[in-house]
């Protein structure tokens, strides 16, 4: 139990600013994506195991609530990927970049790159939801 408490209070109380936020976001986005992936593999497998169930699940994915969740998922996949590349590159080729200053700057670059990919994707996904769930734009 003490390890649980130490780890969790470390997550919340530690004040590493950008580096710490990047670490937490990498964890959260990674865990969020695996959670989705496990459910996703099972729901796609329904096409073979129980086709009727697959149609029910797809209907659920088409709701507005799930649509918002998918926009979040796309953020997770972009941020985790770019930040993961940053980690792998520093670890394997540029360990000297693990300094506080470089860490801060590269975290900001990572966030900006994520937004550049995520915002256009969000535009299309919101448009999809508005067309299909709210009958806008001739849907």
């Amino acid at each position: 139990m003490s390890t649980l408490k130490t780890t969790l209070t470390g997550y919340v109380g530690y004040r590493g600013r950008e580096g710490h936020y990047a670490f937490l976001l990498h964890r959260i986005t990674g865990l969020g994506t695996v959670l989705f992936l496990v459910i996703h593999i099972v729901d796609i497998a329904l096409v073979y195991l129980a086709p009727k169930g697959f149609l029910d699940v797809i209907a659920l994915y088409q709701t507005t609530l799930f649509g918002i969740g998918e926009i979040g998922l796309v953020f997770c996949v972009f941020f985790h990927g770019i930040n993961g590349l940053r980690i792998a590159y520093f670890d394997m080729f540029k360990p000297a970049n693990w300094s506080i200053e470089t860490g801060r700057n590269s975290t900001r670059v990572t966030l900006i790159a994520t937004l550049i990919l995520w915002l256009p994707a969000t535009f299309f996904m919101v448009r999809n939801i508005l067309i299909h769930n709210f009958g806008l734009f001739g849907g």
């Binding site: 088409q62 799930f66 796309v74 996904m125 067309i131 299909h132």
Partner: peptide, 9 residues
């Protein structure tokens, strides 16, 4: 998710 979209599935 972005190009095809879940509504076409």
């Amino acid at each position: 998710d972005v190009i095809v979209g879940v509504h076409a599935m």
